[in-house]
Design a binder for these strands. Structure first.
Lengths: 158, 158
DNA sequence: CTTGATTGGTGCGATATCGTACTAAATAAT
DNA sequence: ATTATTTAGTACGATATCGCACCAATCAAG
């Protein structure tokens, strides 16, 4: 049998958490004042997956509460990076669109990250990284699937 | 040379971010009300790395501002999971100690995570996971080293 | 249709994160 | 020794996250 022990998963998630913090710091250092990682993630998502998404759909994709998504979108809208329109197919819902300014910002940020990534890329072997990526995707899919239909035994009483 | 392209690193960090959110949700579902992941991380750190650490040291270890660490420790202290004492070797500093309650909570939380990890572990191959772990550690070390002495070109103008 | 349940979005309050500014202690410079 | 600089910790304010409650639109059950 080849199931990971609790300690293995623990160590794995621990490294994940640290890398997430460090990589987020790299990104946020390239964002204009007032914007943080979730703002950029939204711009990126709309570019890659297509505009005209409903906020609730994006909240689910990012695994955040819909109230958090409302707040993030409000920040992007106030700064003119996105536009919210009514959803003609559902009166409750809205649809999110990028503005030219939003598209431009995403491109500019990605450009500005190039030197960071080049510097870091020099220290990391491509082969190992590309071997790791499918494993991460597999783990992500597993966790995501687990989220729906999991054991719901109670939390520690504290 | 086999340097990763920007797109490879981008995809890598993207997966990291999603897994971090999902794994954090798993942990926080097992914590008593009022505690979140950073609280547990502190308890875990003190257990593994030893008690009697200074708050500033832990802030650096977790890559968070010292004000955030102050706040996290306050929450743990108010609930009786840690005790802060003066540092006899440095009048500016404090040292952080676990209480019995804090030690018990950590053990209890880890116990309560066992079924989650067992369920998830069934879906992930141990071999791939243990192969991935050193790569993640390598990336983490690279990013950490990069943090000190990096290029400081300006952020996007927005 | 009418009614009840569900769903998308938001207001609000509690807590979290983090930058700025400050204090007191320690250290460096002279 | 005196002074200047650095460092550990905290108070405070701005923004972020997120649960709860609510409304309006939709959908389901009859």
């Amino acid at each position: 049998m080849h199931e990971p022990k609790t300690a293995d998963l623990f160590a794995f998630f621990n490294e994940i958490g640290i890398i997430e913090q460090l990589s987020r710091a790299i990104l946020e250092a390239r964002l204009p004042s007032g914007l943080i990682a979730p703002h950029f993630t939204v711009l990126n998502h709309l570019t890659r997956l297509g505009e005209g998404r409903a906020p609730i759909e994006m909240a689910r994709a990012f695994q955040v509460p819909k109230t958090s998504m409302t707040h993030t979108l409000k920040g992007l809208e106030e700064r003119g990076y996105i536009a919210l329109r009514a959803n003609p197919a559902d009166g409750r819902s809205k649809l999110v669109y990028l503005t030219d300014k939003g598209r431009a910002l995403r491109a500019e940020v990605i450009q500005s990250l190039a030197p960071d990534f080049a510097r870091i890329g020099k220290k990391i072997d491509l082969k190992t990284l590309t071997e790791v990526l499918p494993v991460l995707q597999d783990v992500r899919i597993t966790l995501d699937a687990d989220r729906n239909g999991k054991n719901t035994s109670p939390a520690a009483s504290g």
